[in-house]
Amino acid sequence: MKKVLIIQRLLPHYRIDFFNKLRTTLAANGVELSLVYGKDIQSQKNDEADLEWATYIDTQEIKLGNTELYWQPSLPYLPGKDLVIVEQANKNLINYLLLVRRLFSGHKIAYWGHGLNRQANPNDFRNTFKKAFLTRCDWWFAYTSQVKEFLAENGFPRDKITTVQNAIDTTELTNQYNSLTASDAEELKNELGIQSDNIGLYVGGIYKEKRINFLIKAADLIRAQVKDFHLIVVGSGVEASVVKEAASTREWLHYVGPKFGLEKVKYFKIARLFLMPGLLGLAVLDSFAQQTPTVTTNFPFHSPEVEYLENGVNGVMTEDTVERYAYEVSQLMQDEARREQLVEGCKVAAKKYTLTHMVHNYAEGILKCLHLSPVVQLPEINR
Protein backbone atom coordinates (compact mmCIF):
# COMPACT_ATOMS: atom_id res chain seq x y z
CA MET A 1 0.00 0.00 0.00
CA LYS A 2 1.39 3.40 -0.99
CA LYS A 3 1.66 5.92 1.85
CA VAL A 4 1.06 9.66 1.72
CA LEU A 5 1.65 12.24 4.45
CA ILE A 6 0.09 15.70 4.53
CA ILE A 7 1.64 18.26 6.91
CA GLN A 8 -0.58 21.17 7.96
CA ARG A 9 0.48 23.98 10.28
CA LEU A 10 -3.18 24.52 11.26
CA LEU A 11 -6.34 22.41 11.03
CA PRO A 12 -9.45 24.60 10.69
CA HIS A 13 -12.95 23.19 11.24
CA TYR A 14 -13.83 23.42 7.56
CA ARG A 15 -11.06 20.98 6.60
CA ILE A 16 -12.28 18.08 8.79
CA ASP A 17 -14.80 16.69 6.29
CA PHE A 18 -12.30 17.07 3.46
CA PHE A 19 -9.58 15.06 5.17
CA ASN A 20 -12.00 12.36 6.32
CA LYS A 21 -13.39 11.89 2.81
CA LEU A 22 -9.97 12.09 1.15
CA ARG A 23 -8.66 9.40 3.49
CA THR A 24 -11.61 7.11 2.65
CA THR A 25 -11.29 7.70 -1.10
CA LEU A 26 -7.54 7.04 -1.09
CA ALA A 27 -7.91 3.90 1.02
CA ALA A 28 -10.35 2.50 -1.55
CA ASN A 29 -7.62 3.07 -4.14
CA GLY A 30 -4.81 1.42 -2.20
CA VAL A 31 -3.27 4.53 -0.64
CA GLU A 32 -2.85 5.16 3.09
CA LEU A 33 -3.19 8.80 4.15
CA SER A 34 -1.60 10.26 7.27
CA LEU A 35 -2.04 13.80 8.54
CA VAL A 36 0.19 15.78 10.90
CA TYR A 37 -1.05 19.14 12.11
CA GLY A 38 -0.35 21.89 14.62
CA LYS A 39 -2.25 24.78 16.18
CA ASP A 40 -1.92 28.52 16.59
CA ILE A 41 -2.35 29.01 20.32
CA GLN A 42 -2.57 32.78 19.82
CA SER A 43 -5.36 32.61 17.24
CA GLN A 44 -8.56 34.45 18.12
CA LYS A 45 -10.62 32.99 15.30
CA ASN A 46 -11.78 29.99 17.38
CA ASP A 47 -11.91 27.92 14.21
CA GLU A 48 -9.26 25.24 14.80
CA ALA A 49 -10.17 21.58 15.32
CA ASP A 50 -8.78 18.14 16.14
CA LEU A 51 -9.04 14.91 14.18
CA GLU A 52 -8.97 11.55 15.91
CA TRP A 53 -6.98 9.60 13.32
CA ALA A 54 -4.50 12.44 12.63
CA THR A 55 -1.42 13.33 14.69
CA TYR A 56 -1.15 16.61 16.56
CA ILE A 57 2.36 18.02 17.14
CA ASP A 58 3.35 21.23 18.89
CA THR A 59 4.43 23.93 16.48
CA GLN A 60 7.43 25.95 17.61
CA GLU A 61 7.40 29.65 16.72
CA ILE A 62 10.76 31.25 15.98
CA LYS A 63 11.16 35.03 15.84
CA LEU A 64 13.59 36.41 13.26
CA GLY A 65 13.37 40.17 13.54
CA ASN A 66 9.79 41.02 12.57
CA THR A 67 9.31 37.67 10.87
CA GLU A 68 7.69 34.64 12.45
CA LEU A 69 8.94 31.22 11.36
CA TYR A 70 7.40 27.87 12.28
CA TRP A 71 9.04 24.54 12.98
CA GLN A 72 6.90 21.42 13.05
CA PRO A 73 8.92 18.48 14.45
CA SER A 74 7.46 15.98 11.99
CA LEU A 75 10.65 14.11 11.06
CA PRO A 76 9.59 10.86 12.83
CA TYR A 77 6.58 10.65 10.49
CA LEU A 78 8.54 10.83 7.21
CA PRO A 79 10.05 7.33 6.89
CA GLY A 80 8.16 5.01 4.58
CA LYS A 81 6.10 7.77 2.94
CA ASP A 82 5.94 7.71 -0.85
CA LEU A 83 4.74 11.31 -1.03
CA VAL A 84 4.76 14.23 1.42
CA ILE A 85 2.43 17.15 0.75
CA VAL A 86 3.08 20.51 2.40
CA GLU A 87 1.55 23.96 2.31
CA GLN A 88 3.55 26.31 0.12
CA ALA A 89 4.57 28.83 2.78
CA ASN A 90 7.86 30.67 3.26
CA LYS A 91 7.49 30.51 7.04
CA ASN A 92 7.23 26.71 7.31
CA LEU A 93 10.78 25.53 7.99
CA ILE A 94 9.95 21.86 7.41
CA ASN A 95 9.55 22.67 3.71
CA TYR A 96 13.24 23.50 3.28
CA LEU A 97 14.35 20.31 5.00
CA LEU A 98 12.07 18.30 2.71
CA LEU A 99 13.54 20.05 -0.34
CA VAL A 100 17.06 19.05 0.72
CA ARG A 101 15.86 15.51 1.47
CA ARG A 102 14.28 15.32 -2.00
CA LEU A 103 17.47 16.57 -3.64
CA PHE A 104 19.63 13.81 -2.16
CA SER A 105 17.17 10.93 -1.79
CA GLY A 106 14.58 11.38 -4.53
CA HIS A 107 11.68 11.30 -2.05
CA LYS A 108 8.64 12.98 -3.60
CA ILE A 109 7.14 16.15 -2.22
CA ALA A 110 4.19 18.19 -3.43
CA TYR A 111 3.03 21.72 -2.73
CA TRP A 112 -0.50 22.73 -1.94
CA GLY A 113 -1.37 26.40 -2.11
CA HIS A 114 -1.92 29.70 -3.91
CA GLY A 115 1.36 30.02 -5.80
CA LEU A 116 2.07 33.41 -4.22
CA ASN A 117 0.96 35.50 -1.28
CA ARG A 118 -2.10 37.26 -2.68
CA GLN A 119 -2.31 39.64 0.27
CA ALA A 120 0.98 41.27 -0.74
CA ASN A 121 2.54 42.92 -3.77
CA PRO A 122 3.34 40.18 -6.34
CA ASN A 123 6.85 41.59 -6.73
CA ASP A 124 7.77 42.12 -3.07
CA PHE A 125 10.59 40.21 -1.39
CA ARG A 126 8.35 37.52 0.08
CA ASN A 127 6.76 36.64 -3.24
CA THR A 128 10.07 36.81 -5.09
CA PHE A 129 11.47 34.36 -2.54
CA LYS A 130 8.41 32.13 -2.87
CA LYS A 131 8.72 32.05 -6.68
CA ALA A 132 12.29 30.79 -6.35
CA PHE A 133 10.93 27.52 -4.95
CA LEU A 134 7.86 27.15 -7.19
CA THR A 135 9.31 24.44 -9.42
CA ARG A 136 11.26 22.52 -6.79
CA CYS A 137 8.71 19.82 -6.14
CA ASP A 138 7.23 16.79 -7.89
CA TRP A 139 3.59 17.85 -8.01
CA TRP A 140 1.36 20.86 -7.38
CA PHE A 141 -2.12 20.97 -5.88
CA ALA A 142 -3.36 24.37 -7.02
CA TYR A 143 -6.32 25.92 -5.24
CA THR A 144 -8.05 27.13 -8.42
CA SER A 145 -7.68 27.21 -12.20
CA GLN A 146 -6.13 30.69 -12.10
CA VAL A 147 -3.48 29.42 -9.67
CA LYS A 148 -2.74 26.60 -12.14
CA GLU A 149 -2.25 29.15 -14.92
CA PHE A 150 0.10 31.19 -12.72
CA LEU A 151 2.20 28.10 -11.95
CA ALA A 152 2.37 27.07 -15.61
CA GLU A 153 3.35 30.59 -16.66
CA ASN A 154 6.19 30.44 -14.12
CA GLY A 155 7.68 27.24 -15.45
CA PHE A 156 6.01 24.33 -13.65
CA PRO A 157 4.89 21.49 -15.97
CA ARG A 158 1.17 21.83 -16.64
CA ASP A 159 0.66 18.04 -16.63
CA LYS A 160 1.92 17.87 -13.04
CA ILE A 161 -0.57 20.39 -11.67
CA THR A 162 -3.88 19.32 -10.14
CA THR A 163 -6.56 21.98 -9.91
CA VAL A 164 -8.06 21.16 -6.54
CA GLN A 165 -11.05 23.52 -6.89
CA ASN A 166 -10.81 24.43 -3.22
CA ALA A 167 -14.16 23.99 -1.47
CA ILE A 168 -16.09 23.29 1.69
CA ASP A 169 -19.05 20.97 2.26
CA THR A 170 -21.61 23.05 0.41
CA THR A 171 -23.98 20.07 0.13
CA GLU A 172 -24.38 19.84 3.89
CA LEU A 173 -24.71 23.61 4.18
CA THR A 174 -27.46 23.63 1.54
CA ASN A 175 -29.30 20.83 3.33
CA GLN A 176 -29.07 22.68 6.63
CA TYR A 177 -30.24 25.92 5.03
CA ASN A 178 -33.23 24.21 3.40
CA SER A 179 -34.14 22.46 6.66
CA LEU A 180 -34.78 25.78 8.40
CA THR A 181 -38.32 27.14 8.32
CA ALA A 182 -39.80 30.62 8.21
CA SER A 183 -40.64 30.27 11.89
CA ASP A 184 -36.97 29.46 12.64
CA ALA A 185 -35.99 32.69 10.88
CA GLU A 186 -38.60 34.76 12.73
CA GLU A 187 -37.49 33.31 16.05
CA LEU A 188 -33.89 34.42 15.46
CA LYS A 189 -34.96 37.87 14.28
CA ASN A 190 -37.06 38.26 17.43
CA GLU A 191 -34.07 37.28 19.58
CA LEU A 192 -32.06 40.03 17.90
CA GLY A 193 -34.87 42.57 18.05
CA ILE A 194 -35.03 42.89 14.25
CA GLN A 195 -38.35 43.70 12.58
CA SER A 196 -37.05 44.05 9.02
CA ASP A 197 -36.11 41.87 6.06
CA ASN A 198 -33.33 44.20 4.92
CA ILE A 199 -30.52 42.40 6.70
CA GLY A 200 -26.88 42.31 5.64
CA LEU A 201 -24.58 39.64 7.05
CA TYR A 202 -20.85 39.43 7.61
CA VAL A 203 -19.38 36.05 8.63
CA GLY A 204 -15.64 35.50 9.00
CA GLY A 205 -12.46 36.39 10.80
CA ILE A 206 -12.27 39.95 12.07
CA TYR A 207 -8.84 41.27 11.17
CA LYS A 208 -7.22 43.99 9.07
CA GLU A 209 -7.51 42.39 5.63
CA LYS A 210 -11.26 41.94 6.10
CA ARG A 211 -11.63 45.76 6.27
CA ILE A 212 -14.14 45.94 9.08
CA ASN A 213 -13.89 49.74 9.27
CA PHE A 214 -14.78 49.92 5.57
CA LEU A 215 -17.80 47.70 6.25
CA ILE A 216 -19.02 49.84 9.16
CA LYS A 217 -18.62 53.08 7.19
CA ALA A 218 -20.54 51.55 4.29
CA ALA A 219 -23.22 50.25 6.66
CA ASP A 220 -23.78 53.79 7.97
CA LEU A 221 -24.40 54.97 4.40
CA ILE A 222 -26.66 52.01 3.64
CA ARG A 223 -28.70 52.71 6.76
CA ALA A 224 -29.17 56.30 5.59
CA GLN A 225 -30.62 55.04 2.30
CA VAL A 226 -32.46 51.94 3.57
CA LYS A 227 -34.09 53.08 6.81
CA ASP A 228 -34.77 49.59 8.20
CA PHE A 229 -31.34 48.14 7.29
CA HIS A 230 -29.63 45.90 9.88
CA LEU A 231 -26.11 44.46 9.83
CA ILE A 232 -25.19 41.25 11.66
CA VAL A 233 -21.52 40.42 12.23
CA VAL A 234 -20.57 36.80 13.00
CA GLY A 235 -16.98 35.88 13.86
CA SER A 236 -14.05 36.81 16.03
CA GLY A 237 -10.51 38.10 15.70
CA VAL A 238 -8.08 40.81 16.69
CA GLU A 239 -10.39 43.63 15.55
CA ALA A 240 -13.55 42.31 17.22
CA SER A 241 -13.41 45.28 19.60
CA VAL A 242 -13.99 47.59 16.60
CA VAL A 243 -17.29 45.86 15.91
CA LYS A 244 -18.31 45.84 19.57
CA GLU A 245 -17.66 49.56 19.88
CA ALA A 246 -19.60 50.33 16.70
CA ALA A 247 -22.51 48.15 17.85
CA SER A 248 -22.69 50.01 21.15
CA THR A 249 -23.76 53.19 19.32
CA ARG A 250 -25.86 51.62 16.54
CA GLU A 251 -28.97 49.68 17.57
CA TRP A 252 -29.15 48.21 14.05
CA LEU A 253 -25.65 46.66 14.20
CA HIS A 254 -25.56 43.25 15.91
CA TYR A 255 -22.31 41.53 16.90
CA VAL A 256 -22.95 37.89 17.91
CA GLY A 257 -19.42 36.44 18.06
CA PRO A 258 -18.30 33.18 16.40
CA LYS A 259 -20.95 30.62 15.37
CA PHE A 260 -20.58 27.16 13.85
CA GLY A 261 -22.74 24.51 12.22
CA LEU A 262 -26.50 25.02 12.14
CA GLU A 263 -26.22 28.02 14.47
CA LYS A 264 -24.24 29.87 11.81
CA VAL A 265 -26.60 28.79 9.03
CA LYS A 266 -29.53 30.43 10.84
CA TYR A 267 -27.99 33.86 10.26
CA PHE A 268 -27.80 33.24 6.52
CA LYS A 269 -31.46 32.24 6.60
CA ILE A 270 -32.50 35.71 7.74
CA ALA A 271 -30.02 37.69 5.60
CA ARG A 272 -30.65 39.08 2.13
CA LEU A 273 -27.02 39.81 1.25
CA PHE A 274 -23.59 38.61 2.35
CA LEU A 275 -21.34 41.65 2.82
CA MET A 276 -17.58 41.13 2.43
CA PRO A 277 -15.85 44.26 1.11
CA GLY A 278 -12.38 43.06 2.11
CA LEU A 279 -10.51 39.81 1.55
CA LEU A 280 -12.85 37.21 0.02
CA GLY A 281 -11.95 33.55 -0.24
CA LEU A 282 -13.80 30.36 0.69
CA ALA A 283 -16.56 32.43 2.29
CA VAL A 284 -18.01 32.92 -1.18
CA LEU A 285 -19.03 29.25 -1.06
CA ASP A 286 -21.01 29.89 2.13
CA SER A 287 -22.98 32.48 0.22
CA PHE A 288 -23.63 30.09 -2.68
CA ALA A 289 -24.75 27.21 -0.50
CA GLN A 290 -26.96 29.40 1.65
CA GLN A 291 -28.47 31.40 -1.21
CA THR A 292 -27.23 34.75 0.10
CA PRO A 293 -25.47 36.66 -2.72
CA THR A 294 -22.08 38.16 -1.93
CA VAL A 295 -21.34 41.83 -2.44
CA THR A 296 -17.61 42.53 -2.48
CA THR A 297 -15.24 45.05 -4.08
CA ASN A 298 -12.41 44.81 -6.59
CA PHE A 299 -10.01 44.81 -3.64
CA PRO A 300 -6.61 43.72 -5.07
CA PHE A 301 -5.76 41.19 -2.34
CA HIS A 302 -8.56 38.61 -2.48
CA SER A 303 -7.83 34.89 -2.07
CA PRO A 304 -7.96 32.66 -5.20
CA GLU A 305 -11.56 31.53 -4.60
CA VAL A 306 -12.78 35.01 -5.56
CA GLU A 307 -12.69 33.70 -9.14
CA TYR A 308 -15.81 31.64 -8.31
CA LEU A 309 -17.79 34.88 -8.06
CA GLU A 310 -19.30 35.90 -11.41
CA ASN A 311 -20.21 39.55 -11.25
CA GLY A 312 -23.92 40.01 -11.85
CA VAL A 313 -24.53 36.26 -12.01
CA ASN A 314 -24.00 34.84 -8.52
CA GLY A 315 -22.75 37.93 -6.71
CA VAL A 316 -21.65 41.53 -7.18
CA MET A 317 -18.19 43.10 -7.28
CA THR A 318 -18.19 46.89 -6.99
CA GLU A 319 -15.59 49.60 -7.34
CA ASP A 320 -13.36 49.72 -4.27
CA THR A 321 -14.88 52.77 -2.57
CA VAL A 322 -17.14 52.98 0.47
CA GLU A 323 -19.64 55.14 -1.41
CA ARG A 324 -19.99 52.86 -4.42
CA TYR A 325 -20.18 49.75 -2.25
CA ALA A 326 -22.92 51.27 -0.09
CA TYR A 327 -24.84 52.40 -3.18
CA GLU A 328 -24.81 48.93 -4.78
CA VAL A 329 -25.89 47.22 -1.55
CA SER A 330 -28.70 49.74 -1.08
CA GLN A 331 -29.91 49.22 -4.63
CA LEU A 332 -29.91 45.43 -4.24
CA MET A 333 -31.78 45.64 -0.96
CA GLN A 334 -34.56 47.47 -2.82
CA ASP A 335 -34.55 45.43 -6.04
CA GLU A 336 -35.90 41.98 -5.17
CA ALA A 337 -36.10 40.77 -8.78
CA ARG A 338 -32.39 41.45 -9.32
CA ARG A 339 -31.48 39.89 -5.99
CA GLU A 340 -33.48 36.76 -6.83
CA GLN A 341 -31.53 36.40 -10.09
CA LEU A 342 -28.34 36.37 -8.05
CA VAL A 343 -29.85 33.78 -5.70
CA GLU A 344 -30.51 31.50 -8.67
CA GLY A 345 -26.88 31.96 -9.69
CA CYS A 346 -25.81 30.98 -6.18
CA LYS A 347 -27.80 27.74 -6.44
CA VAL A 348 -26.03 26.83 -9.68
CA ALA A 349 -22.59 27.65 -8.28
CA ALA A 350 -23.25 25.63 -5.11
CA LYS A 351 -23.62 22.49 -7.25
CA LYS A 352 -20.40 23.19 -9.13
CA TYR A 353 -18.04 23.97 -6.26
CA THR A 354 -18.48 21.02 -3.93
CA LEU A 355 -16.38 19.12 -1.44
CA THR A 356 -17.01 15.93 -3.44
CA HIS A 357 -15.38 17.48 -6.49
CA MET A 358 -12.45 18.71 -4.40
CA VAL A 359 -11.86 15.28 -2.85
CA HIS A 360 -11.97 13.59 -6.24
CA ASN A 361 -9.61 16.14 -7.76
CA TYR A 362 -7.15 15.80 -4.91
CA ALA A 363 -7.27 12.00 -4.88
CA GLU A 364 -6.83 11.89 -8.65
CA GLY A 365 -3.76 14.12 -8.38
CA ILE A 366 -2.20 11.90 -5.70
CA LEU A 367 -2.78 8.78 -7.78
CA LYS A 368 -1.24 10.40 -10.87
CA CYS A 369 1.76 11.59 -8.87
CA LEU A 370 2.30 8.05 -7.60
CA HIS A 371 1.70 6.58 -11.09
CA LEU A 372 -1.31 4.60 -9.89
CA SER A 373 -4.53 3.81 -11.72
CA PRO A 374 -7.79 4.23 -9.78
CA VAL A 375 -9.15 1.02 -8.28
CA VAL A 376 -12.44 2.77 -7.58
CA GLN A 377 -13.23 4.89 -10.62
CA LEU A 378 -13.32 8.61 -9.89
CA PRO A 379 -16.20 10.35 -11.69
CA GLU A 380 -15.64 12.87 -14.44
CA ILE A 381 -16.31 16.40 -13.23
CA ASN A 382 -16.21 19.92 -14.57
CA ARG A 383 -12.90 21.71 -14.05
Rank of each mutant, 00 (worst) to 15 (best):
E323F: 11
N314V: 06
A152I: 13
P277K: 00
V4H: 01
D50F: 12
D124H: 04
L221M: 13
I381W: 08
T25I: 01
L51D: 04
E319Q: 14
L378F: 11
R15Y: 02
P379M: 10
T297R: 07
Q331M: 10
R223K: 15
T321A: 07
I199H: 02
L253Y: 01
K217E: 15
E319R: 12
L273F: 07
L372P: 05
G278R: 00
K227G: 01
V243K: 02
I57S: 10
E310F: 13
W53T: 09
R136K: 15
Q176G: 11
N213D: 15
N175L: 11
H254K: 12
Y77P: 00
N166F: 07
E187I: 09
I161S: 13
G315V: 02
L180G: 04
V359P: 03
V313Y: 10
G315H: 03
L192C: 08
L103G: 00
G365D: 09
N198Q: 14
N90L: 14
N123D: 14
T318R: 04
I168S: 00
S248D: 11
Y111C: 05
F129R: 11
T170K: 05
K244S: 10
D184V: 08
A185M: 05
Q42K: 13
Y327N: 12
D138W: 02
E172F: 04
I109V: 10
A167C: 12
I6H: 04
A49M: 09
G281F: 05
A363P: 05
S179I: 07
G200I: 06
K351N: 14
V265Q: 06
K91Q: 14
E323S: 14
G115M: 09
A218R: 01
F18D: 01
Y308A: 04
N175S: 12
G155D: 08
L309R: 05
K227H: 13
V359W: 05
R339C: 11
R101I: 10
E245C: 02
Y111H: 10
S34G: 10
N178E: 14
N95S: 15
L355T: 04
E307R: 09
E307S: 14
E245F: 03
T297P: 10
S303F: 13
N175P: 00
G200Y: 09
H230A: 05
L64F: 12
N298G: 06
K368L: 11
A185D: 08
M1K: 09
A27T: 12
L173W: 01
H13G: 00
L97H: 06
A142V: 10
G235P: 03
L22I: 06
M333F: 15
P122D: 06
A247S: 15
D159Y: 10
L262P: 01
F288G: 01
G312I: 07
V233Y: 03
K189E: 09
D228R: 01
Y267M: 03
L78P: 00
C346S: 03
D335H: 14
K45Q: 13
T24C: 03
A240R: 13
T128W: 14
A120H: 12
K217R: 15
